[in-house]
């Protein structure tokens, strides 16, 4: 189980790093486009689609599992002051399990959608070329699935300090 937790922590971190790579790629890609257009009058017509469909989805969905492990999801702590540590911990565990269910639902929606887009080989028509974009629909499916798993591990990490260490969870 410890090894599994370690794996989950590692995969989540690795995906978050893929997200950072997407940030860098997005910046350089857009700047290259601006430079080519202004200096050499060359139009890179694929830039908006690549940015929107690959970089943006990469940044948004791949780090979700890592965000959950690091407990960086935003909530409104209206009752925080009225809770004992014990009660808060219990409530955190419940929240993580509910969160996992919501991610399962999102993944449940995303996988068939991705498969459907893959089957029809979805592309967009840019100026005069057909640019395939169906691969990008798998990114949310992967991100939500791992986030669902990460939430369960986080719930476990909340009750077991050793699991928390193996996961690389943030300390309170």
């Amino acid at each position: 189980m410890q090894a599994l937790a370690k794996l989950a922590g590692g995969v989540s971190r690795a995906l978050a790093y893929v997200g950072t790579a997407a940030v860098v790629a997005m910046m350089l890609h857009i700047c290259l486009d601006v430079a080519l257009r202004n200096l050499f009058n060359i139009a890179m017509n694929t830039t908006p689609e690549i940015v929107a469909r690959y970089y943006m989805t990469g940044i948004a969905f791949l780090p979700l599992a890592w965000l959950e492990l690091r407990r960086q999801m935003i909530s409104v702590e209206l009752l925080e002051f009225a809770m004992t540590d014990r009660l808060r911990r219990q409530s955190d565990v419940v929240v993580m399990i509910v969160a996992s269910l919501v991610y399962v639902a999102l993944a449940w929606g995303a996988w068939p959608k991705a498969l459907k887009e893959a089957r029809s080989g979805t592309f967009v028509e840019l100026v005069s070329l057909q640019f395939e974009v169906w691969h990008s629909y798998f990114i949310p499916a992967v991100g939500f699935s791992l986030a669902a798993v990460a939430c369960l591990f986080t719930a476990w990490g909340l009750v077991s300090p050793r699991a928390a260490d193996a996961l690389g969870m943030a300390r309170e």
């Binding site: 009058n41 139009a43 694929t46 028509e125 840019l126 100026v127 005069s128």
Partner: peptide, 21 residues
């Protein structure tokens, strides 16, 4: 350009078709 035929027309006359939302 809003589509391939318009791009072909533009290119035929030496203009550069651009893809913009």
């Amino acid at each position: 350009s809003g589509g391939a035929p318009y791009s072909r027309w533009a290119e035929h006359f030496g203009a550069t078709p651009v893809n913009i939302a």
